[in-house]
Amino acid sequence: MTTTRPRVYLAGPDVFRPDAVQHMKALAHACEALGMRALIPSDDGAAAAGLEGPALARAIYNVNMGLLSEAQGVIANLVPFRGAEPDSGTVFEVGVAIALGLPVVAYGVDQTSYAAGIPAHRDAAKVLRDAAGMAVEDFGLPLNLMLSCAVTFAGSAEEALRALAGVLLAPSNADTG
């Protein structure tokens, strides 16, 4: 019987950090310490190969979708990014992971109510509305209900990795490749 270390895709806007390489190496090291292997989003040399614009974007998409398809689990940094919502690319990756049946543990999320973080007011019908008049979900969840109901939340990337290790390295999962 051969066992391999579970592969964990590291989703999030962390790839845009000024210290992205060092940060992702630290997360990969934390994966290794827990008996898992990190799958780090990348362009797989597409930029160095001279690709630009839409061709570069497509190459990055293809590489990362390939990595995601090899994963047994995902940790996702759903911190607000460039606004009140998580990075749309990360949200897409979470959706793909959920569709593939992969466990997803998210971090970077304030555990207070999503509605509390949106400037909003109650209308005459007591519906919470934002400045544009759009209804704001008020379920007491930390994010939009589709994300909140699909993922497990952890306080940090390291806690997310430990939680995912608990799922992926459980005895019933230990013999999967």
Rank of each mutant, 00 (worst) to 15 (best):
P86R: 06
T176C: 08
R122W: 07
N144A: 07
V151D: 00
A150L: 07
A120S: 14
M146G: 04
A99D: 09
A165S: 11
G108V: 01
T152P: 01
E85C: 09
H121N: 11
K126R: 14
V109M: 03
A135K: 15
H121P: 05
P119M: 06
R162W: 03
S172C: 08
A84M: 12
G133N: 10
A165N: 00
V136I: 13
G108I: 01
A150T: 03
D123E: 08
R162F: 03
T176F: 14
V105M: 00
P142R: 10
R162D: 10
E159L: 13
E85L: 15
V167Y: 06
A157H: 01
S148N: 06
D87P: 04
R122Q: 11
V105S: 00
A125H: 14
A174M: 06
A124K: 13
R122K: 13
E137P: 07
T152A: 10
P119R: 09
G89V: 07
A115F: 06
V136Q: 06
L128E: 05
L128Q: 09
V136D: 04
P171R: 05
L168S: 00
N173I: 03
S88Q: 09
F139H: 15
A116Y: 07
V104N: 02
S156W: 02
A124Q: 13
A106P: 00
V104P: 00
R122E: 10
V96E: 07
L128W: 12
V96T: 09
V109E: 03
L141W: 14
R162V: 13
D138W: 12
L143S: 04
N173Q: 11
D138Q: 15
T152K: 09
D138L: 12
A165V: 00
N173M: 14
D130N: 15
L102E: 02
A106E: 01
L102F: 06
P103M: 03
V167K: 12
F139L: 15
R162T: 12
P103Q: 05
F92A: 10
E159N: 15
P171Y: 05
G155E: 11
A84G: 11
V136S: 05
A163Q: 14
T152D: 06
V105C: 02
I118R: 09
F92E: 05
V127W: 11
T112C: 10
A115M: 08
L161F: 02
C149F: 11
L164Q: 02
A120P: 03
A97T: 01
L100P: 03
G133V: 06
A106H: 01
R162A: 14
N144M: 08
G89W: 05
D138H: 15
S156E: 04
A125D: 15
D175Y: 13
E137D: 12
E158M: 03
R82L: 13
L147M: 11
A131G: 08
E159K: 15
G83W: 10
E158S: 10
V104R: 02
